[in-house]
Protein backbone atom coordinates (compact mmCIF):
# COMPACT_ATOMS: atom_id res chain seq x y z
CA UNK A 1 0.00 0.00 0.00
CA UNK A 2 2.70 2.47 1.01
CA UNK A 3 4.79 1.35 -1.86
CA UNK A 4 1.85 1.89 -4.17
CA UNK A 5 1.27 5.39 -2.84
CA UNK A 6 4.93 6.29 -3.17
CA UNK A 7 5.04 4.97 -6.72
CA UNK A 8 1.92 6.86 -7.64
CA UNK A 9 3.16 10.07 -6.04
CA UNK A 10 6.31 9.92 -8.14
CA UNK A 11 4.56 9.09 -11.39
CA UNK A 12 1.92 11.76 -10.78
CA UNK A 13 4.63 14.31 -10.17
CA UNK A 14 6.22 13.34 -13.47
CA UNK A 15 2.84 13.70 -15.20
CA UNK A 16 2.43 17.12 -13.66
CA UNK A 17 5.81 18.26 -14.94
CA UNK A 18 5.00 16.93 -18.42
CA UNK A 19 1.69 18.73 -18.29
CA UNK A 20 3.35 22.01 -17.34
CA UNK A 21 5.87 21.69 -20.16
CA UNK A 22 3.17 20.86 -22.69
CA UNK A 23 0.88 23.66 -21.61
CA UNK A 24 3.68 26.20 -21.36
CA UNK A 25 4.89 25.72 -24.90
CA UNK A 26 1.59 24.90 -26.58
CA UNK A 27 -0.27 27.83 -25.07
CA UNK A 28 2.41 30.21 -26.29
CA UNK A 29 1.74 29.05 -29.82
CA UNK A 30 -1.61 30.77 -29.64
CA UNK A 31 -0.41 34.33 -29.85
CA UNK A 32 0.91 37.25 -27.90
CA UNK A 33 -1.06 38.85 -25.04
CA UNK A 34 0.33 42.27 -26.00
CA UNK A 35 -2.16 42.77 -28.82
CA UNK A 36 -5.02 41.86 -26.54
CA UNK A 37 -3.94 43.87 -23.54
CA UNK A 38 -3.07 47.16 -25.18
CA UNK A 39 -5.62 49.20 -27.12
CA UNK A 40 -5.42 48.66 -30.87
CA UNK A 41 -4.08 52.19 -31.36
CA UNK A 42 -1.15 51.69 -28.98
CA UNK A 43 2.17 52.81 -30.43
CA UNK A 44 5.00 50.46 -31.33
CA UNK A 45 7.03 51.79 -28.38
CA UNK A 46 4.20 51.02 -25.96
CA UNK A 47 4.00 47.49 -27.32
CA UNK A 48 7.75 46.99 -27.12
CA UNK A 49 7.75 48.34 -23.59
CA UNK A 50 4.96 46.00 -22.56
CA UNK A 51 6.79 42.99 -23.96
CA UNK A 52 9.93 44.05 -22.13
CA UNK A 53 8.14 44.39 -18.78
CA UNK A 54 6.51 40.98 -19.06
CA UNK A 55 9.55 39.22 -20.47
CA UNK A 56 7.81 38.34 -23.72
CA UNK A 57 10.83 39.31 -25.81
CA UNK A 58 13.07 36.56 -24.48
CA UNK A 59 13.36 33.33 -26.42
CA UNK A 60 10.79 30.75 -25.32
CA UNK A 61 13.28 28.48 -23.57
CA UNK A 62 14.56 31.41 -21.50
CA UNK A 63 11.01 32.30 -20.51
CA UNK A 64 10.47 28.67 -19.60
CA UNK A 65 13.65 28.60 -17.53
CA UNK A 66 12.55 31.67 -15.58
CA UNK A 67 9.14 30.17 -15.07
CA UNK A 68 10.46 26.87 -13.77
CA UNK A 69 12.96 28.59 -11.47
CA UNK A 70 10.14 30.63 -9.96
CA UNK A 71 7.94 27.59 -9.81
CA UNK A 72 10.28 25.55 -7.63
CA UNK A 73 10.10 28.44 -5.19
CA UNK A 74 6.29 28.10 -5.45
CA UNK A 75 6.00 31.38 -7.34
CA UNK A 76 3.43 30.84 -10.08
CA UNK A 77 3.97 34.23 -11.66
CA UNK A 78 1.62 37.18 -11.92
CA UNK A 79 -1.54 37.48 -13.92
CA UNK A 80 -0.99 40.06 -16.64
CA UNK A 81 -4.66 41.01 -16.64
CA UNK A 82 -5.24 41.15 -12.96
CA UNK A 83 -1.83 42.37 -11.80
CA UNK A 84 -1.96 39.89 -8.92
CA UNK A 85 -0.21 36.58 -8.18
CA UNK A 86 -1.74 33.95 -10.46
CA UNK A 87 -1.96 31.35 -7.72
CA UNK A 88 -4.01 33.71 -5.57
CA UNK A 89 -6.42 34.33 -8.44
CA UNK A 90 -6.78 30.61 -9.10
CA UNK A 91 -7.21 29.40 -5.52
CA UNK A 92 -9.97 31.93 -4.90
CA UNK A 93 -11.84 30.60 -7.90
CA UNK A 94 -11.02 26.96 -7.23
CA UNK A 95 -12.61 27.04 -3.79
CA UNK A 96 -15.94 27.88 -5.43
CA UNK A 97 -15.59 25.17 -8.05
CA UNK A 98 -14.57 22.60 -5.46
CA UNK A 99 -17.67 23.29 -3.37
CA UNK A 100 -19.93 23.19 -6.38
CA UNK A 101 -18.38 19.94 -7.65
CA UNK A 102 -18.40 18.25 -4.25
CA UNK A 103 -22.03 19.04 -3.46
CA UNK A 104 -23.18 18.01 -6.92
CA UNK A 105 -21.16 14.82 -7.19
CA UNK A 106 -22.16 13.50 -3.76
CA UNK A 107 -25.81 14.00 -4.67
CA UNK A 108 -25.39 12.53 -8.14
CA UNK A 109 -23.55 9.45 -6.87
CA UNK A 110 -26.21 8.60 -4.32
CA UNK A 111 -29.16 9.22 -6.59
CA UNK A 112 -27.69 7.48 -9.63
CA UNK A 113 -26.56 4.35 -7.79
CA UNK A 114 -29.88 3.86 -6.01
CA UNK A 115 -32.10 4.56 -9.01
CA UNK A 116 -29.80 2.81 -11.50
CA UNK A 117 -29.73 -0.43 -9.51
CA UNK A 118 -33.48 -0.32 -9.03
CA UNK A 119 -33.88 0.07 -12.80
CA UNK A 120 -31.57 -2.89 -13.41
CA UNK A 121 -33.47 -5.12 -11.04
CA UNK A 122 -36.44 -5.30 -13.33
CA UNK A 123 -35.10 -4.74 -16.81
CA UNK A 124 -37.79 -3.49 -19.15
CA UNK A 125 -40.18 -2.76 -16.30
CA UNK A 126 -42.07 0.50 -15.98
CA UNK A 127 -39.61 1.99 -13.52
CA UNK A 128 -36.70 1.01 -15.75
CA UNK A 129 -38.27 2.62 -18.81
CA UNK A 130 -39.19 5.84 -17.04
CA UNK A 131 -35.80 6.17 -15.37
CA UNK A 132 -33.97 5.45 -18.61
CA UNK A 133 -36.08 7.89 -20.59
CA UNK A 134 -35.63 10.82 -18.24
CA UNK A 135 -31.98 10.18 -17.50
CA UNK A 136 -31.22 10.08 -21.21
CA UNK A 137 -33.05 13.32 -21.84
CA UNK A 138 -31.13 14.84 -18.95
CA UNK A 139 -27.83 13.59 -20.29
CA UNK A 140 -28.40 14.96 -23.77
CA UNK A 141 -30.22 18.27 -23.23
CA UNK A 142 -28.08 21.40 -23.67
CA UNK A 143 -27.35 22.65 -20.16
CA UNK A 144 -27.91 26.31 -20.95
CA UNK A 145 -31.46 25.50 -22.00
CA UNK A 146 -32.13 24.00 -18.63
CA UNK A 147 -30.33 26.83 -16.85
CA UNK A 148 -32.20 29.63 -18.62
CA UNK A 149 -35.56 27.93 -18.44
CA UNK A 150 -34.98 27.26 -14.73
CA UNK A 151 -34.19 30.94 -14.16
CA UNK A 152 -37.20 32.07 -16.15
CA UNK A 153 -39.51 29.71 -14.27
CA UNK A 154 -38.21 29.62 -10.70
CA UNK A 155 -36.63 33.06 -10.34
CA UNK A 156 -38.59 35.34 -12.65
CA UNK A 157 -41.92 33.49 -12.80
CA UNK A 158 -42.47 32.19 -9.27
CA UNK A 159 -39.89 34.36 -7.55
CA UNK A 160 -38.88 31.46 -5.30
CA UNK A 161 -35.15 31.61 -5.88
CA UNK A 162 -32.58 34.28 -6.77
CA UNK A 163 -31.63 34.34 -10.46
CA UNK A 164 -27.91 34.09 -9.90
CA UNK A 165 -24.98 35.03 -7.74
CA UNK A 166 -23.69 33.89 -4.38
CA UNK A 167 -24.49 34.69 -0.80
CA UNK A 168 -27.20 32.51 0.71
CA UNK A 169 -28.07 28.82 0.56
CA UNK A 170 -30.81 29.67 -1.89
CA UNK A 171 -28.27 30.85 -4.42
CA UNK A 172 -26.84 27.33 -4.65
CA UNK A 173 -30.03 25.52 -5.51
CA UNK A 174 -30.36 26.39 -9.20
CA UNK A 175 -26.71 25.95 -10.22
CA UNK A 176 -26.37 22.66 -8.34
CA UNK A 177 -29.61 21.33 -9.83
CA UNK A 178 -28.60 22.26 -13.36
CA UNK A 179 -25.13 20.83 -12.91
CA UNK A 180 -26.66 17.66 -11.44
CA UNK A 181 -28.65 16.60 -14.48
CA UNK A 182 -26.05 15.52 -17.02
CA UNK A 183 -23.73 13.41 -14.83
CA UNK A 184 -26.82 11.94 -13.18
CA UNK A 185 -28.18 10.70 -16.50
CA UNK A 186 -24.82 9.32 -17.56
CA UNK A 187 -23.95 7.59 -14.30
CA UNK A 188 -27.43 6.16 -13.92
CA UNK A 189 -27.10 4.52 -17.31
CA UNK A 190 -23.70 3.07 -16.47
CA UNK A 191 -24.94 1.76 -13.11
CA UNK A 192 -27.93 0.20 -14.77
CA UNK A 193 -25.83 -1.37 -17.51
CA UNK A 194 -23.20 -2.90 -15.30
CA UNK A 195 -25.77 -4.03 -12.74
CA UNK A 196 -27.59 -5.96 -15.45
CA UNK A 197 -24.36 -7.70 -16.36
CA UNK A 198 -23.48 -8.38 -12.74
CA UNK A 199 -26.92 -9.73 -11.84
CA UNK A 200 -26.88 -12.12 -14.77
CA UNK A 201 -23.33 -13.31 -14.26
CA UNK A 202 -22.83 -16.93 -13.39
CA UNK A 203 -21.80 -16.67 -9.77
CA UNK A 204 -24.71 -14.43 -8.79
CA UNK A 205 -27.06 -16.85 -10.47
CA UNK A 206 -25.45 -19.75 -8.69
CA UNK A 207 -25.76 -17.98 -5.39
CA UNK A 208 -29.37 -17.24 -6.17
CA UNK A 209 -30.13 -20.79 -7.24
CA UNK A 210 -28.52 -22.26 -4.18
CA UNK A 211 -30.61 -19.95 -2.12
CA UNK A 212 -27.68 -19.40 0.23
CA UNK A 213 -28.20 -15.68 0.48
CA UNK A 214 -31.19 -13.44 0.86
CA UNK A 215 -32.05 -11.13 -2.03
CA UNK A 216 -30.50 -8.09 -0.37
CA UNK A 217 -27.15 -9.80 0.02
CA UNK A 218 -27.13 -10.83 -3.61
CA UNK A 219 -27.97 -7.29 -4.52
CA UNK A 220 -25.13 -5.86 -2.50
CA UNK A 221 -22.79 -8.49 -3.86
CA UNK A 222 -23.71 -7.64 -7.44
CA UNK A 223 -23.46 -3.94 -6.76
CA UNK A 224 -19.98 -4.41 -5.45
CA UNK A 225 -19.00 -6.10 -8.68
CA UNK A 226 -20.75 -3.52 -10.80
CA UNK A 227 -18.98 -0.63 -9.14
CA UNK A 228 -15.68 -0.66 -11.04
CA UNK A 229 -16.85 1.03 -14.24
CA UNK A 230 -19.24 3.18 -12.22
CA UNK A 231 -16.44 4.60 -10.11
CA UNK A 232 -14.43 5.28 -13.23
CA UNK A 233 -17.25 7.25 -14.81
CA UNK A 234 -17.90 9.10 -11.56
CA UNK A 235 -14.24 10.02 -11.52
CA UNK A 236 -14.39 11.20 -15.10
CA UNK A 237 -17.42 13.37 -14.40
CA UNK A 238 -15.89 14.76 -11.24
CA UNK A 239 -12.70 15.59 -13.13
CA UNK A 240 -14.76 17.43 -15.73
CA UNK A 241 -16.39 19.42 -12.98
CA UNK A 242 -13.08 20.23 -11.30
CA UNK A 243 -11.98 21.64 -14.63
CA UNK A 244 -14.90 23.97 -14.16
CA UNK A 245 -18.47 24.08 -15.28
CA UNK A 246 -18.14 26.91 -17.75
CA UNK A 247 -21.78 27.24 -18.74
CA UNK A 248 -23.22 27.05 -15.25
CA UNK A 249 -20.57 29.35 -13.83
CA UNK A 250 -21.13 31.86 -16.61
CA UNK A 251 -24.91 31.93 -16.42
CA UNK A 252 -25.21 31.95 -12.65
CA UNK A 253 -22.33 34.34 -12.08
CA UNK A 254 -20.38 31.82 -10.03
CA UNK A 255 -16.76 32.97 -9.74
CA UNK A 256 -15.36 29.48 -10.40
CA UNK A 257 -12.27 28.18 -12.13
CA UNK A 258 -14.02 27.18 -15.37
CA UNK A 259 -14.95 30.72 -16.27
CA UNK A 260 -11.55 31.93 -15.09
CA UNK A 261 -9.81 29.41 -17.30
CA UNK A 262 -11.73 30.19 -20.47
CA UNK A 263 -11.34 33.94 -19.92
CA UNK A 264 -7.61 33.52 -19.35
CA UNK A 265 -7.20 31.31 -22.39
CA UNK A 266 -9.00 33.79 -24.61
CA UNK A 267 -6.97 36.66 -23.13
CA UNK A 268 -3.71 34.70 -23.33
CA UNK A 269 -3.08 35.27 -19.63
CA UNK A 270 -0.62 32.38 -19.53
CA UNK A 271 0.33 32.54 -15.84
CA UNK A 272 -3.30 32.07 -14.82
CA UNK A 273 -3.85 29.30 -17.38
CA UNK A 274 -0.83 27.40 -16.08
CA UNK A 275 -1.67 27.93 -12.44
CA UNK A 276 -5.25 26.82 -12.86
CA UNK A 277 -4.22 23.74 -14.80
CA UNK A 278 -1.74 22.82 -12.11
CA UNK A 279 -4.25 23.29 -9.31
CA UNK A 280 -6.97 21.30 -11.06
CA UNK A 281 -4.51 18.65 -12.23
CA UNK A 282 -3.30 18.22 -8.68
CA UNK A 283 -6.87 17.68 -7.53
CA UNK A 284 -7.58 15.27 -10.38
CA UNK A 285 -4.43 13.22 -9.78
CA UNK A 286 -5.31 12.99 -6.12
CA UNK A 287 -8.79 11.83 -7.01
CA UNK A 288 -7.45 9.22 -9.43
CA UNK A 289 -5.24 7.77 -6.71
CA UNK A 290 -8.27 7.53 -4.45
CA UNK A 291 -10.19 5.83 -7.25
CA UNK A 292 -7.47 3.23 -7.73
CA UNK A 293 -7.48 2.59 -4.01
CA UNK A 294 -11.23 2.16 -4.23
CA UNK A 295 -10.80 -0.45 -6.96
CA UNK A 296 -8.57 -2.40 -4.63
CA UNK A 297 -10.96 -2.04 -1.72
CA UNK A 298 -13.92 -3.21 -3.79
CA UNK A 299 -12.19 -6.12 -5.40
CA UNK A 300 -9.48 -7.73 -3.30
CA UNK A 301 -8.19 -9.61 -6.35
CA UNK A 302 -6.93 -6.34 -7.82
CA UNK A 303 -3.45 -5.77 -6.53
CA UNK A 304 -0.99 -3.07 -7.35
Amino acid sequence: MQKFLARRAVSSAISLVLLVIAVFFLSRLTGDPTDLYLPVDASAEARENFRQIHGLNDPLYVQFGHYMLDLVQLDFGDSIRRARPALEVVTEAFVWTLQLAAITMVGVTFAAIVLGSLAAFRVGGLFDRVATFFSLIGASAPDFWIAIVAIVVFAVGFGWLPTSGTGTVWHWILPVSVLFIRPFGLILQVVRGSMITALSSAYVKTARAKGVAPRATIFVHALRNAMLPVITVIGDQAAGMLNGAVVVETIFGFPGVGKLMIDSILQRDFAVVLASIMVTAFAIFLMNILIDLAYGALDPRIRY
Binding site: I148, T163, S164, T250, F252, G253
Partner: peptide, 17 residues
Amino acid sequence: LFRSDDAVRAAMVATGE
Protein backbone atom coordinates in the same frame (compact mmCIF):
# COMPACT_ATOMS: atom_id res chain seq x y z
CA LEU B 1 -22.53 42.60 -9.47
CA PHE B 2 -21.06 40.71 -12.40
CA ARG B 3 -23.10 38.45 -14.67
CA SER B 4 -21.87 37.68 -18.15
CA ASP B 5 -25.13 36.19 -19.39
CA ASP B 6 -27.35 38.78 -21.11
CA ALA B 7 -30.64 37.11 -20.26
CA VAL B 8 -29.70 36.85 -16.58
CA ARG B 9 -28.80 40.54 -16.32
CA ALA B 10 -32.12 41.50 -17.82
CA ALA B 11 -33.96 39.10 -15.50
CA MET B 12 -32.23 40.56 -12.44
CA VAL B 13 -33.86 43.95 -12.91
CA ALA B 14 -37.19 42.26 -13.54
CA THR B 15 -36.96 40.36 -10.24
CA GLY B 16 -35.65 43.35 -8.28
CA GLU B 17 -32.22 41.80 -7.68
